[in-house]
């Protein structure tokens, strides 16, 4: 990891309303290096957006310390904000405003000015004169991204940037993010699309109930998760090898479908193939794959309480 541009130490965020206080972020330590794409994942209500708002300087931390470029993003707002671009999960526009007017207004308030046509960068150059109320949801999301890119920030905060985008627009957005990464921009991303995090991120953290329960590269995160082998055996096949003893079975017309979860993919797959060859059995619909980020995520979501227990 390059020198850190963002650090959080023991960050907590508590909402105090008319009811009992609610602690949305419960002591988060993170360090994000320059030029890195760091993805923040978690179930709904895990505390991602609450944490992100503190790091962006939109809200103060209830406890702990946040530093962006070595400064407190809430207290030293002016200094930090000039170098950051923020795309919120939810932000609106006055209905009558036109896309081009919004970009011109936003650009005139920024410290950094460049000749880049951000509307063209997000594929909206032909919609500059259109009222925001006439833009589709995906186009509005792209306008959000355009405003975050204005001023060519050193750090981009993208809170679920591709929600509502069609697959092609999503790919285009990824391409823009990659081009910024290539320029040394640091990107902090939250997303519900796990393949997006898997495809783009250098490192990621998974939050659950206000805490970071896993952090590292995609390989680090999935390392503890079992791999999966699936295949179908014909009804008249001989007895399967012992490794299939704990496999899930599902009888169907074509035979019995086996789902084997294993921490040692290579050894078990080799043993299975050797057995099939010796027994002269064809393994129907054979599929073997290492654990995915989705699997790791689902396992954390399902077993959150255990993941939070240091003794577990």
């Amino acid at each position: 990891m390059n020198a850190p541009v963002i650090t959080t130490t023991g960050v907590r965020r508590t909402y105090r309303g008319s009811g009992a206080p609610y602690e949305a972020v419960r002591g988060v330590d993170l360090s994000i290096g320059q030029g890195e794409l760091f993805a923040l994942l978690g179930t709904n209500g895990a505390g991602k957006t609450s944490l992100l708002e503190v790091v962006e300087g939109l809200a103060p931390a209830s406890a702990g310390e946040v530093r962006v470029f070595g400064k407190d993003p809430y207290a030293d707002r002016a200094a930090v904000r000039a170098r950051t671009g923020i795309m919120l999960q939810e932000a609106g526009f006055p209905a009558d405003v036109r896309a081009g007017e919004m970009v011109r207004m936003w650009a005139a308030t920024l410290s950094r000015r460049s000749d880049e046509d951000v509307l063209a960068a997000v594929g909206l150059e032909h919609r500059a004169g259109v009222a925001v109320s006439s833009l589709s949801g995906g186009e509005r999301r792209r306008l959000d991204l355009a405003l975050a890119l204005l001023g060519r920030p050193d750090v981009l905060f993208l809170d679920e940037p591709t929600t509502g985008l069609d697959p092609e627009s999503r790919r285009d957005a990824w391409s823009i993010v990659r081009s910024r990464l290539a320029e040394g921009v640091t990107v902090v991303l939250t997303t519900h699309y796990l393949e997006e995090a898997e495809e783009l991120s250098d490192r990621l953290a998974i939050m659950h109930e206000g805490r970071v329960v896993r952090e590292g590269t995609v390989a680090d995160i999935v390392a503890g998760e079992p791999a999966r082998i699936t295949f179908t055996l014909p009804a008249d096949a001989p007895a399967p090898p012992p490794l299939l003893g704990s496999a899930e079975r599902e009888r169907g017309v074509a035979g019995t479908r086996y789902v084997v979860t294993t921490p040692q993919l290579q050894e078990d797959l080799f043993a299975l193939l050797a057995w099939a060859r010796d027994a002269g059995v064809v393994l129907g619909d054979l599929d073997a794959r290492a654990a995915s980020l989705e699997q790791a995520f689902l396992s954390i979501a399902a077993d959150g309480a255990a993941a939070l227990d240091p003794a577990a």
Binding site: P4, S111, R112, R113, S114, D115, E116, G184
Partner: peptide, 16 residues
């Protein structure tokens, strides 16, 4: 922690 500086951006004009 050491704070990093922004990468050189010759195309940028920076004035608040």
């Amino acid at each position: 922690m050491s704070a990093t500086t922004a990468p050189a951006r010759p195309d940028l004009v920076e004035q608040r």
